[in-house]
């Protein structure tokens, strides 16, 4: 998921200065998990803007309806076409991906030229939950996990070293730039030790191939996913999740 947090309201108001009629677009994807684009967040933002004397139209995106998928967000944007036509600016409460997808769709898909502004800062591709998350993957295009006992040093090591640990490890195996964070390379060492693969640790890993990450990366899939069958297919899993006893937070087997 893409973790995110709301920008300071002063920054948002700065973007909207002189713009009185605002459309707020929420997001039913990752932004819902981080309370930065769900219904409550959209309502909260609307209150703040209305207090500043602005007229607000809200576009809620229900759970699992992400702004970053045009097929989904297009439906909700088109429903409020009139409001979008009349507005002075659009504020999107998603990650930067959603903001840009909305920008492109409103201009090219709907033929409307509007300023589209971000309400959030995306802060990483994270895993974990439900309350604690950790950035784990850079989406670098050349996964190194096979060489590093399943821990990505490009993301988890502050320096992104391919051959650590560096000389800055603290006495408690924490990182030199943040005593809250574990040293990724000590973790890698410990995992390799337990896996009986310390010989791999001794091998020099080649510098990362950054050529695999020429931005912006574009790609195409041959067959688009069928939303309806995907949702029906997801039902058994969803029911299992709903009616099963879930482990408590922090509980170990």
């Amino acid at each position: 998921m893409i973790a995110q947090e709301q920008k300071p309201i002063e920054e948002i108001l700065g973007y909207l200065e002189g713009k009185n009629n605002i459309v707020i677009v929420g997001c039913g994807g990752c932004a819902t998990f981080y309370h930065t684009g769900d219904k409550k967040a959209v309502d909260g933002m609307a209150d703040k803007l209305e207090k500043e004397g602005k007229k607000v139209t809200k576009i809620y995106m229900p759970f699992s309806m992400q702004v970053c998928e045009t097929e989904k967000s297009g439906v909700f944007l088109n429903k409020k076409r009139k409001a979008l036509e009349d507005c002075d600016a659009v504020l999107v409460m998603s990650c930067g991906d959603g903001v840009q997808v909305a920008t492109e769709y409103i201009e090219e898909g709907m033929g409307l030229m509007k300023g589209v502004y971000p309400a959030n800062n995306a802060i990483g591709l994270v895993g974990g939950g439900p309350t604690k998350f950790k950035e784990t993957c850079l989406s670098c295009g050349m996964c190194e996990l096979g060489k590093t006992a399943g821990i990505c040093p490009l993301t988890s090591c502050g320096k992104g070293l391919m051959n650590g640990p560096c000389g800055g490890v603290r006495v408690d195996n924490k990182c030199e730039i943040d005593p809250e964070k574990d040293c990724a390379w000590v973790k890698i060492y410990e995992r390799m030790e337990k896996l009986g693969e310390l010989d791999k640790f001794l091998e020099m890993r080649a510098p990362h191939e950054w050529s695999k990450c020429k931005r912006p990366r574009l790609f195409e899939i041959e067959e688009p996913v069928n939303m309806m069958s995907a949702m029906i297919g997801a039902m058994p899993g969803f029911l299992t999740y709903t009616f099963s006893a879930k482990p408590k937070l922090g509980e170990k087997e």
Partner: peptide, 13 residues
């Protein structure tokens, strides 16, 4: 120029 255009394309830009 972007590093990928030269003779050391794997370098981090």
């Amino acid at each position: 120029d972007h590093v990928s255009l030269g003779d050391t394309p794997d370098a981090k830009p």
